[in-house]
């Protein structure tokens, strides 16, 4: 499946939708497919700082744990609390209801270095 081109992607398989200086972050369809059934998402709290390239949480399937890497730096302004009760949303709708955090970016140009959907599809295809 091709990834939607309304957003950009990181090599760690997170996507970013930038709305002004706010970045909405989730994981890609490819990533959720690799993980299998998501059973738990451990997310930070509103007000925490995230740094580009560093972890902001963890996502678990039944038999794996993966770290979530933030593609941008800034302060967390919103966390998708609904994933606490229904982590399966990450599988069902990774690019929509399965979003994870919203970050107020220090510098909105940070997203410029990320991949387009086309580039990401190619990146994934290369394995």
């Amino acid at each position: 499946m091709a990834h939607p081109n309304d957003r950009v992607y990181s090599e760690e398989h997170e996507w970013v939708v930038a709305e002004g200086d706010t970045a909405i972050i989730g994981i890609s369809h490819f990533a959720q497919d690799q993980l299998g059934e998501v059973v738990y998402v451990d997310l930070p709290s509103v007000g925490d700082e995230v740094i580009a390239g560093e972890t902001f949480g963890e996502i678990e399937s039944v038999k794996s744990v993966s770290e979530l890497y933030s593609p941008v730096s800034g302060e967390i302004v919103e966390v998708n609390e609904a994933l606490g009760d229904s982590p399966e949303t990450v599988n069902a709708d990774p690019h929509g209801e399965g979003w994870m955090i919203k970050v107020k970016m220090e510098d909105a140009s940070q997203v410029d270095g990320l991949m387009s959907a086309e580039e990401y599809d190619e990146f994934v295809a290369q394995g």
Partner: peptide, 9 residues
Amino acid sequence: LSTREQHIR
């Protein structure tokens, strides 16, 4: 909840 354990984490 095996992801807590040594064989996974």
